[in-house]
Every structure is written in C-alpha cells, then in structure tokens.
Simulated assay, not measured.
Amino acid sequence: MKLLLVAATSFEIQPFISYYSSTELERKHDVDVLVTGVGMVATAFSLGRKFSEGRYDFAINAGIAGSFNKNIEIGETVVVKDDRFVELGAEDNESFLSIEELGFGISTYFSSFTNSFLESLKAVSGITVNKVHGRLSSIESTLNLFNPDVESMEGAAFLFACREVDIPAVELRSISNYVEPRNRDSWQITLAITNLNDTLIRFVEHLSKDE
C-alpha cells in the first residue's frame, strides 16, 4: 500500500518517522511524508503539487488541534469525521452567509476511510481557520454558528484536496489545548504529539493486518 502522511510541521510527526524507518513497517508500506507548512493555503498548494507527481492508495493528515469540547481530554487523539472552512462566505450585518447559501460551492468535507481501529477513536466535527480562536466573543460566536468540536488550520484543505483526486483520506488530531482566551501556559503540546504518534503507529500497523 502506498500511503501519504501529511502534516503541517515535521515535529508533529517526527516520532512516527523515526519509528517507521527502524521497523518492519518500512517493508510493509511505502510511506511518503509531506510537510506542507502551516495553514490551508500552504496545505492545498503542497497537496496539489504532490498529487500531480503520482497516485496514492491512501492519505493521512496528522497533527495537533485545539478543542472547543471539554468532553475531549487534553492529549486525546480523535478522528475528524467532517471538517469545514468556516470563514468561507460573507457577513450580512450580524449574520453569516455560508458559501453554500451564496450558491458558490461547498465548505464541508469528510474523512472518506474507516476501519475497526478508527472506529475505536472518538469521532468529532472540525473547523479549519486562518486565525485560531483566542477571544471569548469570537469563540462564543463560532460555537453558536457551527458547534464544532475541534479546530485546526489545515484539516478541511487536506480533505478537499483528497476529494478532488478521489483518494481515500482520514484526518487524525490530538488535542493540545482547549479553545479559550489565549493561554499558552495551559497547552500540552508534548503530550499531544506523543499520543498522536502512538495512535498513528498503531493505525498503520493495523492497516498491515487488514491487508
């Protein structure tokens, strides 16, 4: 199986890369790693260029995220079943018109692969933003409009690109912080990365058993 592992930054998936290169997983799966850079524009461009070079059987987006949902634990790894470009649309005074309502496209994209391992993870709804939330008023407005569980800066762009070329895709996120007025002292990035990579390793090993 030829897999594409996509991340915004190399440090988010470095433990997996080190493990993969030192075990028999390297013989079982041909894994390409694509580090796109942060943000939806960098992600979409990098994936478009990568997909023009060849075909993949499957793509995985792995990274950390913030959670609006306090029922998700810090450090927990979740599968994002749907992800939305929440800024894609227009303001209408105090209201927001989505790109669907404007009649110009769609804003929500879906993970298109599942198996028994993924079904053991909590499935959540995500949003993709250019500016992560850190102000109470904008957090409350976003919750009222979209009721998301998690947010990232790349997820929907990844799912969009995979959909365009018909490649099965899944988005995995580990929670580094709750979405609240910005407080980096409360973030648990190391824990999130450790758990993300543990889940990623077990997921790819499970793919080997499915073959």
Score class of each variant (00 low, 15 high):
1 M>R: 08
2 K>V: 06
2 K>F: 05
8 A>V: 12
14 Q>D: 09
15 P>I: 11
16 F>V: 04
18 S>C: 07
21 S>C: 02
23 T>K: 03
24 E>R: 07
27 R>V: 03
30 D>H: 11
32 D>R: 09
34 L>P: 00
35 V>K: 07
35 V>I: 15
39 G>V: 13
40 M>F: 15
41 V>G: 02
42 A>L: 12
44 A>V: 13
48 G>C: 08
48 G>P: 03
51 F>K: 10
51 F>H: 12
54 G>H: 02
55 R>C: 12
60 I>A: 09
61 N>R: 01
61 N>K: 03
62 A>I: 00
64 I>F: 04
64 I>L: 04
65 A>R: 05
65 A>F: 03
67 S>D: 05
70 K>F: 03
70 K>G: 01
71 N>M: 01
72 I>L: 09
72 I>S: 00
73 E>G: 01
74 I>G: 07
74 I>T: 13
75 G>V: 00
75 G>D: 00
76 E>D: 01
76 E>V: 11
79 V>E: 05
80 V>G: 10
82 D>F: 00
84 R>K: 13
85 F>A: 05
85 F>S: 02
86 V>M: 11
89 G>N: 05
89 G>I: 01
91 E>N: 01
93 N>I: 08
93 N>T: 10
93 N>Y: 13
94 E>C: 11
96 F>S: 02
96 F>W: 12
98 S>M: 01
98 S>I: 01
99 I>A: 11
100 E>T: 06
100 E>Q: 15
101 E>M: 04
104 F>D: 04
105 G>K: 09
107 S>V: 04
107 S>G: 05
108 T>Y: 04
108 T>A: 05
114 T>P: 01
116 S>I: 03
118 L>R: 02
119 E>H: 04
121 L>A: 08
121 L>K: 07
121 L>E: 02
122 K>D: 04
124 V>Y: 08
127 I>K: 02
127 I>P: 03
128 T>F: 10
131 K>G: 04
132 V>A: 13
132 V>F: 07
134 G>R: 12
136 L>F: 07
136 L>E: 15
139 I>G: 06
140 E>F: 05
143 L>G: 03
143 L>C: 12
145 L>Q: 14
145 L>F: 10
146 F>N: 08
150 V>Y: 08
151 E>K: 04
152 S>C: 14
154 E>K: 08
158 F>S: 01
160 F>Q: 14
162 C>N: 14
162 C>T: 15
162 C>P: 03
163 R>K: 15
165 V>K: 15
165 V>I: 15
165 V>R: 13
166 D>F: 13
167 I>G: 09
168 P>G: 02
169 A>T: 08
170 V>R: 12
171 E>Q: 11
172 L>A: 07
172 L>T: 08
172 L>E: 04
173 R>H: 11
174 S>A: 15
174 S>P: 08
175 I>N: 03
177 N>E: 12
180 E>S: 09
180 E>R: 06
182 R>W: 14
185 D>G: 07
185 D>M: 05
186 S>A: 05
186 S>H: 06
187 W>F: 08
188 Q>T: 02
190 T>P: 10
191 L>T: 13
192 A>Y: 04
199 T>K: 00
201 I>Y: 02
202 R>P: 00
203 F>Y: 11
204 V>L: 07
205 E>K: 14
208 S>K: 05
209 K>T: 13
210 D>Y: 13
